[in-house]
Computed example of a mutant assay.
Amino acid sequence: MKEIGQTSRRLFVASGNKGKISEFQALFSDLPVSLHLKPKGFEVEESGKTFAENARIKAIAVAKETGHWAIADDSGLSVTALNGAPGVFSARYGTTDSERIGRLLNELRGKGDRSAFFSAAICLASEEGDVLLEVEGVASGLIALAPRGENGFGYDPVFEIKELGLTFAEMPKQQKAQFGHRGKAFKILKPMLIKLLSD
C-alpha cells in the first residue's frame, strides 16, 4: 500500500496519549504517512459539546500550528445508567486511569443496567485548517464488575464486549482494532484517506 504517491506525507497526531499514538501507528502501518506527535507543550482546549466537535477543534489547531496535515480523535465512554456520563469528560473523570475506573465502578454500584458504549470521532485537517475528513465509530458493550486484563489503556479493563465475554484490556491489539470504536472509525476513514493520498 505504501506505493501510493511518491513520498510519505507528514501527519501530526493531535494527542500526547501514548496509548492512542500506539493504536494510530498500528492502524496507519500500511499507509504512506509518517506520524509525528503534536508540538511539545502545545495544548488545545477541548471546548466542544460532542466528541466530533472536540476532534475537529484539535485537528484544526494542530494543523495550523505545524503547517501540516493533522489528525485528531476524541473518544470516550458513555454509560446508560449514568445518563451518558462520563461522555466528553471521560479523560477528566479522574487524574489517573485507576482513579477514573474506581470512580466509575463506585457510581455504578447497585445499578442493574451496566450497558455502555465507546465512541471515537476522528477528524483530519489540512495545513490551512480545513476539515478534509470526519468519521465516527461506536462500540457497544457493558461495564464489568471489576477490571480485567493487562492490555490497552483508559477504561479498557472494565469495558466488556458482551458477545466475546472479554474486556478491551483482555484482547490483543488486532482484536481490539476489530471490535473497538477507534478501529471501526478507522475502517470508515481508511478508504477515504487512501483516495485523498492518491489525488
Rank of each mutant, 00 (worst) to 15 (best):
D130A: 11
I143E: 01
L124K: 06
D113P: 03
R148H: 00
N83G: 15
G102R: 06
S90H: 03
A72N: 07
V135H: 12
A125I: 01
A70K: 04
S90M: 06
W69T: 06
H68Y: 03
F118S: 10
A116D: 06
L145N: 06
A146R: 11
A125V: 04
L105D: 05
L77E: 00
R114Y: 05
A91N: 11
A120Q: 12
G67V: 03
R103N: 10
I71Y: 09
S90T: 02
Y93P: 00
G112W: 09
K64D: 11
A144N: 01
S119P: 06
L82E: 03
G102H: 13
A116F: 01
L108R: 10
D74Y: 03
G84E: 08
N106V: 08
F89D: 01
D74R: 11
C123N: 11
D74M: 05
G84T: 02
I122P: 00
S126M: 14
E150R: 09
D73Y: 00
T66H: 14
E128N: 12
S119M: 14
I122H: 05
L145C: 07
G110T: 04
E107T: 02
E107W: 12
S140F: 10
V79H: 00
T80E: 14
S115L: 15
T95S: 10
S78Y: 01
V88Q: 02
E127V: 10
L105P: 03
R103S: 06
D73K: 00
T80C: 07
S75L: 02
G137C: 14
P147Q: 07
S78A: 09
S126H: 11
G76F: 03
V138I: 15
A144M: 00
G76M: 06
